[in-house]
Amino acid sequence: MAETLVPSLALAEDLRRAIGAFVRHVRAEGDTPRSAQTETLDLLGREGPLSIAALAARRKVKHQSMRLVVSQLEAEGLVDRIVHPRDKRAWNVALTKAGAAWISASRRTRASAIARMIAPLSAADREILRTVTAILDRLAAGDQEPPPHQHDLGFR
């Protein structure tokens, strides 16, 4: 374990650095900076309606801070408060049509920036990116076993 951990740590640092730089570059190219508001909108877009307490816990911020963020988003017409489906005394925060449209536009902008970046790549490099994407998806899902059809790209 120890002999595989050291190279894994070095690779992990390289991956962290490269992914961070890539994300920052894409956000700069697409003019879609991160903020408490955009991260909250993205979270609601991925997970659906949530209470302020759940939003605060998932974003690892204080309840009061999340209340302020939600109030700002509500004032901009990007979220609404809706009755909690199981507890009619409580409420959740949900995206409005304008909030969902904002998320879609932001994602399209970032995808377009990435498409412009990968357009000049060779077919071989694009295939490597497809494989890397599949590996990252597996790691994000907690699945570390390679699929039986994984391609050997000839590099280590």
Rank of each mutant, 00 (worst) to 15 (best):
T4K: 08
T4S: 00
S8D: 02
S8Q: 02
A10E: 06
A10W: 05
L11V: 06
L11T: 01
A12K: 09
D14E: 00
R17N: 07
G20A: 13
G20Q: 05
A21K: 13
A21H: 13
V26K: 07
A28L: 06
A28V: 10
D31K: 14
T32N: 04
T32D: 06
P33G: 10
S35M: 07
S35R: 00
A36L: 05
Q37F: 12
Q37G: 14
T40S: 04
T40G: 09
L41K: 01
D42T: 04
D42S: 09
L43D: 15
L44Y: 01
G45R: 01
G45S: 00
R46T: 06
E47W: 05
E47R: 15
G48T: 08
G48W: 03
G48V: 07
P49R: 13
P49S: 00
L50Q: 12
S51R: 00
S51A: 10
A53Y: 05
A53L: 11
A54I: 12
L55R: 00
A56N: 11
K60A: 11
V61D: 06
H63K: 01
H63E: 05
Q64M: 10
Q64E: 07
S65T: 15
M66S: 01
R67H: 13
R67P: 04
R67E: 12
L68N: 02
V69P: 12
V70C: 10
S71A: 06
Q72L: 03
L73T: 07
E74A: 15
E74T: 02
A75H: 13
G77R: 06
G77I: 04
I82M: 09
I82Y: 15
I82E: 10
I82N: 07
H84L: 02
H84N: 09
H84V: 06
P85I: 02
R86N: 02
D87H: 03
D87A: 11
K88G: 05
K88W: 03
R89Y: 01
R89Q: 11
A90P: 00
A90V: 07
V93Y: 04
A94T: 13
A94W: 11
L95R: 00
L95W: 12
K97N: 15
A98S: 12
A98W: 08
A98R: 03
A101M: 09
W102Q: 02
S104K: 12
S104D: 13
A105S: 11
R107T: 06
T109V: 09
T109S: 04
T109Q: 14
R110D: 06
A113E: 01
A115R: 13
M117S: 07
I118D: 08
P120N: 02
A123L: 10
D125E: 08
R126A: 10
R126T: 11
E127P: 03
E127K: 08
E127W: 07
I128V: 15
L129H: 11
L129Y: 12
V132G: 02
T133Y: 01
T133M: 15
A134Q: 02
A134G: 15
D137F: 12
D137G: 10
D137C: 13
A140E: 05
A140K: 09
A141C: 09
G142D: 05
E145R: 13
E145M: 13
P146C: 04
P147N: 11
Q150N: 04
H151M: 06
H151T: 14
D152S: 02
D152G: 09
D152N: 06
L153Q: 01
